[in-house]
């Protein structure tokens, strides 16, 4: 798409505040970033911010676990973005690059604050006994067809959020990127500097733990 046109288009829709999402989505993140690198236009930056603000804040919150820290990371990431966006080489998707910057800033923050993380390890977490049996407890707490969960209530969201936050950090961040943000195993591995096998292993244990936690919560909830 011709860049001058894209810029004029963005100016128009931003000023008129009548954004047409389907037309807007035709402009890729990478095209926008390239335009920002060349022109440092505030309106282009605003569009990048609109597309990625919640993703950055969400990941920062998942790692740091407080809204205050998440906002500090959020600010740091977008300030870094204005200064170092030229280091984005387009070798990965822009969103992956941004997740990596966010994860690094979040880890720096929790390390500098020496934040307490639980010592819970899920390395050998499994729902079955030594004979490999599920012991009859899964079916007793089967919540998969509860009609009250069909409506995604505020209470259900809180239960899920609390359960995710009980995960150890290394499992929590993988779960967030894969199952909430929808990255592939390969993309999550690149963002976190891990092997694909490590991502899959952490994700597997995270899901088993969460399924169990949700079964406990939803079984007790509105019993």
């Amino acid at each position: 798409m011709e860049r001058g046109f894209i810029k004029r288009f963005i100016n128009t829709i931003t000023r008129s505040k009548s954004s047409d999402d389907s037309t807007m989505s035709a402009i890729s993140d990478e095209e926008l970033v390239q335009m920002y690198i060349e022109q440092e236009d505030e309106l282009i930056f605003e569009e990048i911010l609109s597309r990625h603000a919640d993703k950055v804040f969400g990941l920062a919150l998942r790692i740091t676990r407080t809204t205050e820290d998440a906002e500090e990371v959020f600010q740091e990431v977008f300030i870094t973005l204005t200064k170092k966006i030229g280091t984005f080489r387009g070798e990965s998707k822009f969103s992956s690059w941004l997740y990596r910057v966010t994860a690094n800033a979040s880890y720096m923050r929790i390390r500098s604050e020496k934040k307490h993380e639980s010592n819970l390890s899920l390395e050998s977490y499994a729902p079955y006994d030594e004979k490999g049996s599920l012991m009859g407890r899964i079916r007793n707490k089967d919540w998969s067809s509860r009609p009250d969960l069909a409506i995604f209530s505020k209470e259900a969201v809180t239960i899920i959020e609390n359960s995710i936050n009980e995960l150890p950090e290394s499992n929590r961040v993988v779960f967030h990127l894969r199952d909430i943000e929808g990255l592939s195993n390969e993309e999550a591995a690149k963002v976190l500097g891990l092997s694909v096998a490590a991502v899959k292993s952490r994700l597997h244990r995270a899901r088993l733990f969460l399924r169990d936690k949700l079964s406990d919560y939803f079984y007790e909830w509105r019993k």
Binding site: A53, D54, F57, G58, L61, A70, F74, I138, D142, W143, S144, S145, L149, F152, A156, V157, I160, E161, I164, F175, D179, I180, E181, G182, R207, L210, R211, L214, S215
Partner: peptide
């Protein structure tokens, strides 16, 4: 079934707005 349901619910958290 519960595993699939958990993934379904977690995926909906993507719509959550923070900013």
């Amino acid at each position: 079934d519960t595993y699939n349901r958990m993934l379904d619910l977690a995926g909906k958290l993507k719509e959550k707005k923070f900013v």
